[in-house]
Design a binder for these strands. Structure first.
Lengths: 190, 190
DNA sequence: CGCAACCTATCTATCGATAGACAGACAAAA
DNA sequence: TTTTGTCTGTCTATCGATAGATAGGTTGCG
């Protein structure tokens, strides 16, 4: 047994990510986590000294992986509408995966109970998303002012997070789909 | 001491509402709650046998009070835009009040840990809001189809919940304001 | 050897919930 | 009028479960 350090650390992060997306940061338990990956809770502390360390590592990686995927989208196509559709698909996939949420969306709801290092990562995730959306929007609206793009990008991010939150609350993914459609109809998203 | 039953029950609900809006349902503790209202935790169980009972009572009242306020808005003015602004103001007020959230919004994030009776109330709150929004929209767009109105109402509700969630996550109420402005600019809201 | 990875065992704190006691209010019975 | 009994609201004390965290031991590889 006893894979290399990074193997087990990796397994812990995968399990933790799934738990947080389903139940939130507060519901993340070292004992449950340990059970899932086949070690003891004390050993989880070996890889992540405190819960805050684990949470921050999770959020940081979540942002990094998201950024990498989004960059890939931008590089794949010049079609802003296509990029936007793929973007909405990301958040849909979380719902489709056992009614889960965006890691940073669910953490935003728990904000007051988060250690500072985790809170900082939540901010970075939002900024990263808005930054990407601005790039996409600027392709479709090259004449728009910087401030307009900024507000529009924030609005799209917030609207999609909200669609995910509400659809999750009602446990009905079709609410997400219909909401995104309405966003498109009204011109909020491309 | 020992006010009438309803006095203390009321005090518990007020304190519980504030706690849930700030920290979520899971963070609601009978001991903390009891300390705030000046009794012991066992006495809270006298008023609300289980935590689920308290949560469901909270959410039910939240929906009822919201519905009453919204009905008053509808009765006050025929101006759909004005009603919509007041609607957005409600969610803004929660943020202004110590970065709190919509009770049902924050509960949606915790959905999987909610007792069924609480979960049911979350659904009702969303339905109540969408129903009201449809009424407002139908005043402004009398020719729209029922399905369009439905989707548009859901979209507005989700977008505003999302704006609240994201602004809270960034602890910056100006994000809410700018997001709502963008919703108006793009034509999502009136 | 010596370090990496994981273990056992335990600590303190907090959770929702329950049992059982008690003080005060109030109404019916004597 | 006084006594008795019941109900309400609160209390103390405690239960079992679970939380994050730590100290110190064991195992195995290089």
């Amino acid at each position: 047994m006893a894979r290399t350090k990074n193997d087990m650390r990796e397994a812990v992060m995968v399990a933790a990510k799934a738990t947080v997306q389903a139940h939130g940061y507060n519901a993340l338990s070292f004992r449950e986590l340990a059970k899932e990956v086949g070690i003891k809770s004390a050993s989880v502390h070996y890889h992540f000294p405190t819960k805050g360390d684990l949470g921050a590592a999770l959020a940081r990686r979540y942002t990094e992986e998201g950024a990498a995927y989004l960059a890939e989208l931008l590089a794949t196509s010049n079609d802003a509408s296509w990029c936007m559709e793929r973007y909405a698909d990301i958040f849909r996939a979380a719902l489709a995966n056992d009614n889960r949420m965006c890691l940073c969306g669910i953490m935003s709801a728990e904000l007051d109970d988060l250690p500072p290092e985790v809170r900082a990562e939540v901010d970075k995730f939002a900024a990263m998303n808005v930054g990407w959306l601005i790039k996409v929007l600027s392709r479709a609206k090259p004449s728009a002012s910087e401030q307009d793009l900024q507000e529009h990008g924030m609005a799209i991010f917030a609207a999609i997070e909200g669609a995910q939150l509400v659809a999750r609350g009602c446990q009905d993914i079709s609410i997400y789909d219909r909401t995104i459609r309405a966003y498109r109809t009204t011109g909020l998203i491309l």
